[in-house]
């Protein structure tokens, strides 16, 4: 059974004809060609697929595409604006918060949701928030530093 699914992706209206069993991450990657959102597991553990759905971070591998009908979806590709990196992206680069880069889009999307709810998270809060995002390269230390610095830069920008 195929269904037409339409939603807003990074501010643009998009739609695709998909199987009802198509996962949201599959539609984003395969149908819409935005491959920055990754798949690292099949049990909702790793967080490589984290996107924003109506402003909240969710795991796009544990949602059907049809469940996103009419929603506002944001992925890593929409984070930088007009060619300018977002402060959180800058912070990941500046603090070496990534190595292989595979978990990075999910980490950034998750961190942005954290900062939205808690503009000045301390280290413990960052570590606890990131429990749904696995990284096998960095040992998290520089990711935590990056999120702290990114949050600070975002506060300064406000």
């Amino acid at each position: 059974m195929t269904t037409k699914v339409s939603f807003t992706l990074n501010g643009e209206a998009v739609s695709a004809e998909v199987d009802s069993r198509t996962l949201l991450v599959e539609m984003i990657r395969e149908n819409l060609g935005k491959t920055g959102t990754h798949v690292g597991c099949d049990t909702s553990q790793c967080g490589a697929c984290v996107i924003h759905l109506d402003g909240r971070s969710v795991k796009s591998c544990t949602m059907l595409a049809v469940q996103a009908e009419g929603a506002d979806v944001a992925t890593i590709e929409g984070v930088a604006t007009n060619g300018k990196l977002h402060p959180m992206q800058e912070a990941f680069r500046e603090h070496h918060g990534l190595q292989c880069g595979y978990c990075t889009p999910g980490m950034i999307m998750s961190s942005l949701d954290l900062v939205k709810q808690n503009p000045d998270p301390d280290e413990k809060q960052i570590r606890e928030w990131l429990e749904g995002n696995l990284c096998r390269c960095t040992g998290y230390q520089n990711i935590v530093r990056a999120v702290k610095a990114g949050a600070q830069a975002m506060r300064a920008d406000d």
Binding site: S44, G47, R56, S57, K59, S110, D113, G132
Partner: peptide
């Protein structure tokens, strides 16, 4: 429960 993203869904 779970993690932040699980709690959001």
């Amino acid at each position: 429960i779970g993690d932040a993203q699980v709690r959001n869904r």
